[in-house]
């Protein structure tokens, strides 16, 4: 009964009339003399699942941080669901669910307390029920009263996923979400992303695991040196070519 709510996309997000979930035009990022992103133009429609691939230092994390409003692009524009982070940051933030390298969790609070804190920050209406739901979803219902400090990395990552979905975001930004997950965790992740997409939600994720990227995503974007060098549907992808570019072969 709670599945529709969990999938998180706002009911008014009709695919035909909705603005793109993510739209960037010519985004660059520069730190002093060093350029990180070199003109990223990317449009992601509602319901799409995009895997951002690329070698280390290609700018995947920087791009996600810019989409997440944590970093300002040096030039270019960003829109999330039609809102611009530099004008309407709170509208953007309330639509985003983010999982990053760091869990954003507090070690000495329990799983439930962490989620209750973020529920308050995101002004989630039915917090208690929603927390039950997401904990159930990531398979941590039995650990809700345990402190995060006692969790394994994989469990923390699952809780981070729960945290990201808590406020029913329409766009999920996942930075190497599979990094600490075991097989069961990866399966949970894949299912969550799939269900999110089925409800019209969008996912952009980075990963080093090409297999996972192709399994979870329906579109692959390859970044190299801060540029998009390939953008193709996952179905008609030359895996050997990608692996060559990533230096896996």
């Amino acid at each position: 009964m709670s599945d529709t709510r969990l999938r998180g996309a706002p009911p008014d997000l009709a695919p035909t009339s909705a603005p793109p979930s993510v739209r960037t035009v010519g985004v660059t990022k520069r730190y002093g003399r060093r350029g990180v992103l070199r003109g990223i133009t990317l449009t992601v429609q509602p319901g799409e699942r995009v895997a951002l691939l690329g070698p280390n230092g290609a700018g995947k994390t920087t791009l996600l941080r810019i989409l997440a409003t944590l970093s300002r692009p040096t030039s270019g524009t960003v829109e999330i669901a039609g809102f611009r982070p530099d004008r309407d940051a709170q509208a953007v933030r309330s639509r985003l669910g983010v999982v990053a390298h760091q869990s954003y969790l507090y070690d000495d609070l329990t799983a439930e307390e962490n989620l209750r804190f973020y529920a308050r920050m995101y002004a989630v209406e039915d917090a208690a029920a929603r927390i039950d739901e997401v904990l159930e979803r990531v398979g941590l219902a039995g650990w809700r009263r345990e402190r995060v400090r006692t969790f394994s990395r994989g469990m923390q990552q699952r809780l981070a996923l729960a945290r990201a979905m808590l406020h029913r975001p329409s766009v999920l930004l996942l930075d190497e979400p599979d990094s600490a997950l075991d097989r069961a965790g990866v399966r949970i992740l894949a299912r969550l992303v799939e269900e999110h997409a089925a409800a019209g939600g969008t996912t952009v994720l980075t990963t080093h695991d090409l297999g996972l990227g192709l399994e979870v995503a329906d579109r692959v974007v390859l970044l190299q040196q801060g540029q998009v060098v390939l953008d193709a549907p996952a179905a008609d992808l030359d895996v050997a070519e990608i692996e060559r570019r990533l230096g896996y072969r």
Binding site: L70, Q90, R93, V98, H101, Q102, L105, D107
Partner: peptide, 14 residues
């Protein structure tokens, strides 16, 4: 260090 400052900054809060 824990990265939770980013977690706070992600919240739709002034």
């Amino acid at each position: 260090d824990r990265g939770s400052l980013d977690g706070l900054l992600l919240c739709p809060v002034d």
